[in-house]
Design a protein around this nucleic acid. Sequence first.
DNA 1: CGGGGGTTTGAGTGAGCTCAACTATCGTGG
DNA 2: CCACGATAGTTGAGCTCACTCAAACCCCCG
Lengths: 258, 258
Amino acid sequence: MSEQPALEMLAQRLDALSPLDEADKAAIVALPHTLRVMKAHEYIVREGDKAENSCLLRSGFASRHKIVANGSRQIVSVHMMGDMVNLQNSLLKTADHSVQALTDAEVAFIPGKAIVALAAARPAIAIAMWLDTLIDGAVFREWIANVGRRDAKARTAHVLCEFALRQERAGLATRNKYDLPMTQEQLGDALGLTSVHVNRTLKALEEARLIARDKRTVTIADWEALRKVGDFDPSYLFLELSEEIAATRAAAELYAQH
Amino acid sequence: MSEQPALEMLAQRLDALSPLDEADKAAIVALPHTLRVMKAHEYIVREGDKAENSCLLRSGFASRHKIVANGSRQIVSVHMMGDMVNLQNSLLKTADHSVQALTDAEVAFIPGKAIVALAAARPAIAIAMWLDTLIDGAVFREWIANVGRRDAKARTAHVLCEFALRQERAGLATRNKYDLPMTQEQLGDALGLTSVHVNRTLKALEEARLIARDKRTVTIADWEALRKVGDFDPSYLFLELSEEIAATRAAAELYAQH
DNA sequence: CGGGGGTTTGAGTGAGCTCAACTATCGTGG
DNA sequence: CCACGATAGTTGAGCTCACTCAAACCCCCG
């Protein structure tokens, strides 16, 4: 990943959400942080932990989840390259949920205090981070509706569409073909279904020729049809606010190859 | 409601979340706004609307909801006196969900632009509003887990506990007895259940002597037992951050009577 | 005292669950 | 290079929680 400073990615993301000047970006890149390479399944934050760091996901995938009384798990969000996984840790004192690596991942831990101090000193950064949090909230709302009111087929199709667009935005794949970085068990935990039922549902979507699967690579065979059964309208992702991220990243990659 | 300026309540809330100085509070109270009295069922914001205002709920109750393809509704949050109902409208351009009055309500509409300008000018306010948004998100996460992984009984008990503590914080009731300002149909929309099943579930909770009901007044007969079946742990509400709100409000009421 | 919204109850159905077995894939060490 | 074990995916059979449909019932308000 070149000589790029670790937090360049964060500066880009926030800049895309809400324009920052060069000094703002420099201040973000200069934020104190420690880089860690995590293995799949490793915990990045545990529920109940004292909240000290916020985490930028530099590569790989991570999920946030809660455990309920009967022992089952609910994944409340899935994150990928470029996402700030737990900005809430900057201002809230204890973690209300766990964050776990879904795949091997590179994570930059940034002290919450440094983030708050930066936000206090630089309004544009405060607003960009607030906006990131607002979009986070919009996705949560959609997920509440997803698990609360859609049946298994629609629910599954919906997140398949969401992942497609988010991976495309992150510059990781196209909207028509991407790696689903989670087991059916984990997918079930995200959808509020059992792994057995996820399996049958995916099979049904495949038999209906909406998707194709190979290992964990998902091909969306009929985007329009999948969008329809999944009742998917991407506006809650506010992609237009960060459209240039994928483009920037693609350009950087091209440049790196030469 | 006395001669208090309409936005005093907002200044108090934000100050409780993250300390503000007098100039900050004065600036909040001076924010441009229009007051409206809404009837129950009236829409405050409609999904898809151009987002122009954020709304402070001065009295009454409101809910936010999404409609899914099959026509059913999912309530994603319930709000009460003192809540900012849709801060996201300050920074996001279109509303991704609707806001509706559950009861008659007084609402202060504040232009999103004014809020952003204030946040940009006054870091302490930006951070307080960001924090409010973060707590909003924590509640959304809990609701995802609630509808995704808890059965009807636990799910219902859980929100009954949540409403108790939130109404207590707002100074509207005690945690042992409060008005549930919604029909069983609406409760079902919040829980991802049908109204029929909500009815049976409430009845079961009543027969188990965990709650008692009279019209829409809920009495929690056995808090500890209800908390347990509802798998309720209030930490996600971050009540300690705004403990003084209820106290302040109670004191103000006392003062007003004399 | 009639109408309308909300609540309650019953009866039957079905989507998604549980339990259990079997298969496929893949990394590891002999 | 193969055998093994572990992890993940697939399939079947039966069950149950919550749904649907439908009919009372209740209560408030005009």
